[in-house]
Design a protein around this nucleic acid. Structure first.
Length: 774
DNA sequence: CTAGGGTTAG
C-alpha cells in the first residue's frame, strides 16, 4: 500500500512476564513423541497394523500391495477400504480412487452405503466434484451425512453457490440439517460474501439453541470474524460448552483476521492454562500472530513449545516460523529453516518471497534492504525455473519487492510474462502492479495498470491517488479522489494522506484545509501523524513557517522526525532561526543516535553559520561514539549492480565517469548552477566551513549519487531512464545539480533516496521545488 | 465403519 509521505510507525508486542513463564514452563517439559493426529489414527486402524505401515512412504507401498489383491478381484472387508481411501485423500490421487471405485463395483461393494458416502468424500477432497456428484446420485438412499459430504466438497472446491443449492435440495428431500451441515453452510456464506443468508442460518441456530455445540459454534465464530465482527465471534466462542482445540484455534485466528493479534495471543495463553494442547493448526496461527506483532522472541518460544509437542518437522509450522524470522530481518536463521525442509510447496516459496519483501522494511540500512530484495528476486526466478509456477500471492509479493528496491527492469519483465497467466485480473496483484510502477518512477504506467484493472478496491484507488500525489500530479490525484467518492468507495486514513499530499504539493491551502476537515467531520477519521505532516509541509512550502509551527503545536501527540525535518528545511529557506533551532533541538532529542540526523543538523547549523552548535554537535558525536554515515548509491544495469561510495569515488576504474562528471559540473556552472554553500556562506567564514567539510554542502560535489548518475549516462541507452538508489537523503546541492543534468542531457533521472523518490526531467523534479531537503 | 469446525502467503 502506498503511503505518502512515508512516516513509518511500528508497534511491537511486549509479552507479559506470566506469558513467558507459562510458555517456558511448558517448553521445558520432556519432549513427546510425534503427536500428529495422523499417526494416532493409523495405529488404531486394523488394516494398517496388519500391513505393518507406519510412515507415509510405507502406506504408499501398502496401497501397491493392496493393488495386487485388487487385480485378483479379492473382495475386501469394508474396513480394509478405509485406510486405502484415506491414502487417496492424502496423496490427492483421483486415479487411485478410481481404481478402488472400479474394484468396489466389480466385487459388489457399491451396495454398502457407508463406503460409497466415503467415496463421495474422497472424490470431493481430491477436487473431482463431477465424480463425487455421480457417486452421490447413485447412492441407494441419502441421509444428512451424505448431503453434508457433498456440500462440504463444493465449498472446498470453491463452488459455494453449488453448496447452497445442495442445501436446498436436501431440505426439499426432507432431510434436516445437523450442526455439521450448518457449519458448512456458514462457510459457504462467507465465501459468497452473503451476510444476509448467513444471518438466516444464524437465526436457525438460535431457534434450535445449538450455538453451544462445538461443530456449530466453531463455524459461527469464524463466520463472524470474516464479516469483521470480532465481538460476536468472542461471544460465540465463550458460549461453546465443550471448547476443543478447534474452537481455540478458531478464536485465535479470528483475532488475527480482525487485526487484534495481541488478543489472539491472550487466548493462546488461556488455552494453555486450560490444559488444552495446541496442534499444528494452532501453532501456525499463533506464529503468524507473532509475525504480525513482530514478536520474534515470543514466536521462538511458541516454536520451542511446538517442538516439545512433537511438531518439529511439520512443514506448515516451519513455513510460518521461517516467515517470522524473515520478517524480523533474521535472514540467516530463516535460511536454516529453509534448508531443513524436505519438500518445498508453493506456500514455502511464497513465504520466502513475501518474507524477504518484509525484511526490506526492517533492514538496518538501505544496502541490507536492497540485499533482501535481490534475494526475493533470486528466489522468484528460481521458482520460475522449477516445476511449480508463481501464483497470485507470489506475484503480488514480487511486484511489491520491485517497487521497494527500484527494480524496474525486472518488474517490467515479470509483468510481461504474467499477462498471459490471467493473474493480473486479481485485484491484489493489480494493485501491487500500480504500486510497483509508481515506486519505480512511472506514474504513467501506474495509471495504465490502474485503468486496466477489472475490479478495484479502496486500496487500489488509494494506491493510484497516492501515486499521482507522489509524482506531483496534484490535479489528477484530487480528481481521482472525487471519482472514488462518486463511485461510492469510502476513503480511509491513507487515502486522505494521498489527498492532503496532493494539496501540499500544489500549495493549495484552502483545498488542504477542506480535506482535513472532511476527513475529521464527514469520515470521522482522527488525524494521524502523516496528516499533520502534510499540513506542516503545505504551510512550509508556502513559506508560512509560523502557521506550520502552529499545526505542530496543535497536535495531541509528539511529532516525529519527518515533521521536524520539514520544518527545519523550511526554516533554512526562510532564515527563521527561532523555530528552526527549536526544531533542530527536538529532532536531536528524538533521534539522539541516528548518524544521518547528525549530518543533516551539522549541515543546517553550518548554513546558519552557527559554528558553536556545529562544535557542540561534533563533541556530542564523539561522546556518543556516533560515526559518519557511509553514503552509498547504486545503479543496476542488466542484473548487475554497480555501487558508488562518496569516499572511494576517486578509484581508478571510475576515470571515464569522473571525467564526465567534471564536464557536467563545468557546463552546469555556465548554466548558472551554484552550490548552496557558495550562495549562502560569505568568504570569511568559508574557510571555517571547509573545516566541517565532510558534512557541509561544500563537499557535495563528491556525493555518490552524482557518480552513479554519470555512470548511468554513460552506460544506459539514451531512451531509458536512469534509476539510482541511495542509502541516505539527498542534499540540496545534489538535488539542484541533478535537475540541471536532466535538462542538459535530456534524460529522465530517477533517484530513490532513503526518504522518497525524485524523478528529474527537463530541469524539474517531481517532488516540487521544495521537498524537505536540508 | 459415512459428514464437520481450525492453518501458513498478498
Amino acid at each position: 500500500m502506498a503511503s505518502l509521505p512515508s512516516f513509518p510507525s511500528t508497534t511491537t508486542f511486549q509479552p507479559e512476564p506470566s506469558l513467558l513463564q507459562k510458555l517456558s514452563s511448558i517448553a521445558s517439559l520432556p519432549a513427546q513423541k510425534n503427536a500428529s493426529s495422523q499417526s494416532i489414527s493409523f495405529h488404531r486402524n486394523p488394516l494398517t497394523t496388519q500391513l505393518n505401515g507406519a510412515t507415509e512412504q510405507k502406506r504408499y507401498i501398502d496401497f501397491r500391495e493392496a493393488l495386487s489383491l485388487i487385480r485378483r478381484g479379492t473382495k475386501f472387508k469394508s474396513q480394509v477400504y478405509h485406510p486405502l481411501l484415506q491414502h487417496c485423500i492424502d496423496k490427492n490421487s483421483v486415479s487411485e480412487a478410481e481404481i478402488l471405485h472400479a474394484h468396489m463395483i466389480k466385487t459388489g461393494t457399491q451396495e454398502q452405503f457407508f463406503l460409497m458416502t466415503a467415496l463421495v468424500n474422497v472424490y470431493a477432497k481430491c477436487g473431482d466434484m463431477k465424480s463425487a456428484r455421480k457417486v452421490f446420485d447413485n447412492l441407494p438412499r441419502r441421509n444428512v451425512i451424505a448431503w453434508t459430504t457433498l456440500m462440504s466438497g463444493y465449498v472446498q472446491n470453491s463452488r459455494p453457490e453449488s453448496a447452497v443449492e445442495v442445501y436446498r435440495e436436501m431440505l426439499e428431500s426432507g432431510s434436516l440439517p445437523t450442526g455439521h451441515t450448518l457449519g458448512i453452510a456458514l462457510n459457504a456464506c462467507s465465501a459468497l460474501n452473503l451476510l444476509d443468508l448467513g444471518r438466516q442460518f444464524h437465526a436457525f441456530i438460535i431457534k434450535y439453541k445449538i450455538a453451544h455445540d462445538p461443530s456449530v459454534g466453531n463455524a459461527l465464530c469464524t463466520f463472524y470474524s470474516k464479516f469483521g465482527c470480532l465481538k460476536s465471534a468472542v461471544e460465540t466462542f465463550k458460549g461453546i460448552e465443550e471448547k476443543n482445540v478447534i474452537s481455540w484455534t478458531a478464536i485465535i485466528t479470528a483475532c488475527g483476521d480482525s487485526s487484534d493479534a495481541a488478543s489472539g495471543l491472550r487466548f493462546f495463553i488461556e488455552m494453555l492454562k486450560e490444559d488444552v494442547n495446541p496442534n499444528e493448526f494452532t501453532f501456525t496461527a499463533v506464529i503468524s500472530l507473532c509475525s504480525v506483532l513482530l514478536a520474534l522472541d515470543t514466536g521462538a518460544q511458541v516454536h520451542s513449545l511446538a517442538i516439545k509437542l512433537g511438531y518439529e518437522s511439520n512443514i506448515q509450522i516451519i513455513n510460518s516460523i521461517m516467515y517470522l524470522y524473515l520478517k524480523s530481518g533474521r535472514i540467516d536463521e530463516a535460511q536454516n529453516f529453509f534448508n531443513r525442509l524436505e519438500s518445498v510447496s508453493m506456500v514455502t516459496w511464497n513465504a520466502v518471497i513475501a518474507g524477504h519483501a518484509q525484511a526490506i522494511d526492517v533492514a538496518k540500512d538501505e544496502l541490507l534492504a536492497h540485499r533482501s530484495g535481490t534475494e526475493a528476486l533470486r528466489n522468484y526466478f528460481h521458482l520460475n525455473r522449477s516445476v511449480l509456477k508463481p501464483d497470485l500471492y507470489t506475484l503480488s509479493s514480487i511486484f511489491t519487492v520491485c517497487g521497494k528496491i527500484l527494480a524496474a527492469e525486472q518488474g517490467e519483465q515479470i509483468h510481461a510474462h504474467t499477462i498471459k497467466t490471467g493473474f493480473l485480473s486479481d485485484v491484489v496483484v493489480g494493485t501491487a502492479l500500480v504500486n510497483m510502477y509508481s515506486k519505480c518512477g512511472s506514474v504513467e504506467r501506474a495509471s495504465k495498470a490502474f485503468l486496466e484493472m477489472s475490479t478495484r478496491t479502496m486500496i487500489s484507488w488509494t494506491a493510484m491517488i497516492s501515486s499521482f500525489a507522489q509524482h506531483g500530479w496534484s490535479t489528477q490525484a484530487l480528481q481521482l479522489f472525487e471519482d472514488m467518492r462518486l463511485a461510492g468507495v469510502k476513503p480511509n486514513q491513507i487515502t486522505f494522506v494521498g489527498a492532503l499530499a496532493a494539496c501540499s504539493h500544489a500549495r493549495m491551502v484552502n483545498e488542504g484545509l477542506r480535506y482535513f476537515e472532511m476527513m475529521r467531520k464527514e469520515y470521522r477519521i482522527r488525524p494521524l501523524m502523516d496528516h499533520y505532516g502534510c499540513m506542516v509541509d503545505l504551510y512550509v512550502r508556502l513559506g508560512r513557517i509560523d502557521e506550520a509551527f502552529n499545526v505542530v503545536k496543535k497536535m495531541d501527540f509528539p511529532p516525529n522526525e519527518f515533521i521536524w525535518l520539514v520544518l527545519i528545511s523550511g526554516c533554512r529557506d526562510q532564515g527563521n532561526e527561532e523555530i528552526g533551532f527549536h526544531a533542530a533541538q527536538q529532532l536531536l532529542k528524538l533521534k539522539p543516535k541516528d548518524p544521518q540526523i547528525y549530518s543533516i543538523l551539522l549541515n543546517y547549523y553550518a548554513s546558519a553559520k552557527s559554528w558553536e552548535d556545529v562544535s557542540r554537535l561534533k563533541e556530542l558525536m564523539k561522546e556518543e561514539k556516533i560515526g559518519i554515515l557511509e553514503d552509498w548509491s547504486w545503479i543496476s544495469i542488466k542484473d548487475k549492480v554497480h555501487s558508488f561510495k562518496t569516499s572511494i569515488q576517486r578509484a581508478p576504474g571510475n576515470a571515464g565517469t569522473l571525467r564526465l562528471l567534471d564536464e557536467l559540473l563545468d557546463k552546469a556552472r555556465s548554466h548558472g548552477y551554484m552550490t548552496h554553500a557558495a550562495m549562502e556562506v560569505n568568504n570569511e567564514v568559508r574557510e571555517e566551513e571547509m573545516e566541517h567539510d565532510h558534512y557541509s554542502s561544500a563537499s557535495a560535489a563528491n556525493h555518490s549519487e552524482r557518480l552513479a548518475v554519470a555512470f548511468g549516462l554513460l552506460n544506459i541507452q539514451t531512451d531509458a531512464p536512469i534509476r539510482v538508489n541511495k542509502n541516505t537523503r539527498m542534499c540540496r546541492d545534489c538535488h539542484s545539480f541533478i535537475k540541471i543534468v536532466s535538462s542538459m542531457s535530456s534524460r529522465e533521472i530517477i533517484v530513490k533516496d532513503s526518504w522518497r523518490i525524485h524523478r528529474f526531467a527537463n530541469g524539474q523534479c517531481s517532488c516540487g521545488e521544495f521537498c524537505g531537503l536540508v
